[in-house]
Amino acid sequence: MTSAQTSAQPASQLYPGQERFVAPANEVKLEAVDSVDEDAPALGMWQSAWRVLRKNPLFIVSGILIIFILFVALFPSVFTHVDPRYCNLSNSLRNPSAGHPFGFDQQGCDIYSRVIWGTRTSVSIGISTTIFVTLFGGLIGAVAGFFGGWVDTLLSRITDIFYGIPFLLGAIVLLQMFTDVDSIWKLVATMTLFGWTEMARITRSAVLEAKNLEFNTASTALGSSPARNLFRHVLPNSLAPMIVIATLSLGQYIVSEASLDFLGVGLGGNTVSWGVDISNAQTLIRTNPMVLFYPSLALAITVLAFIMMGDAVKDALDPTGRTA
């Protein structure tokens, strides 16, 4: 077709501007219906999430920080040779000197060394609690969501009850019984006990959503069993919000641990921990604020890194904001 305007009817019978119009056939190339772009790179959900992530400056910054923090936690002796438990009262509150860049605290312990070694405590408590919360809360939520019925009702009521106890209050009640135990595991256990409800709720709703998608019905019609569906389809599809919640709450557990130390129900004096050091330094704020400053800074940077990572992961995995 060469002419842009072909009219089957005389133009006089039409309104001006409403004549028959046919675009030249060569103006728009007619493509094959529904063709596959074979050149585009293949991307699964995780790959596309990764592509979003690696372009996110938040992820890059927090990723580098977290790698560094993990390295410090795993190999503190690379950064200091001073024993954090070696305290000499004659060094009490001494200013920084060679080999002791942050100076000494009231007990005469090396602050730099304690900050370095404290990383391990905070990070292991944060990571362990997150793992246990994810396993326990995830299991409860997945079972409730997948099986439904009375199982769901029962588990949801139990979740409601634990949800009714404010996290810090519950932890205080339990931990005050064990002030003489000086182990990170009492904190991990306590925080798991009072912290699993959110994970359970998120997992339950994610599983409920994934369960009702048609691909489960399709698999059942192929002969797949409910258990196979749960592990092969439903759980993998519920992972994204769980990961987001886990990353975001990791930082919160580290803060909570320090808060519990501060309230005197956390770790004892034998464990090197930022929370304990901050708690001990509180009386020095007017005279020697730097003693308080260094462990606080370390704590804040660690928590910030994990929260930024959580934000980045959330943007990549959950663009619709299901986990708010």
Partner: peptide
Amino acid sequence: YHGHVVESGP
């Protein structure tokens, strides 16, 4: 089609 008006009329 593809953002173009390819044909119009009664």
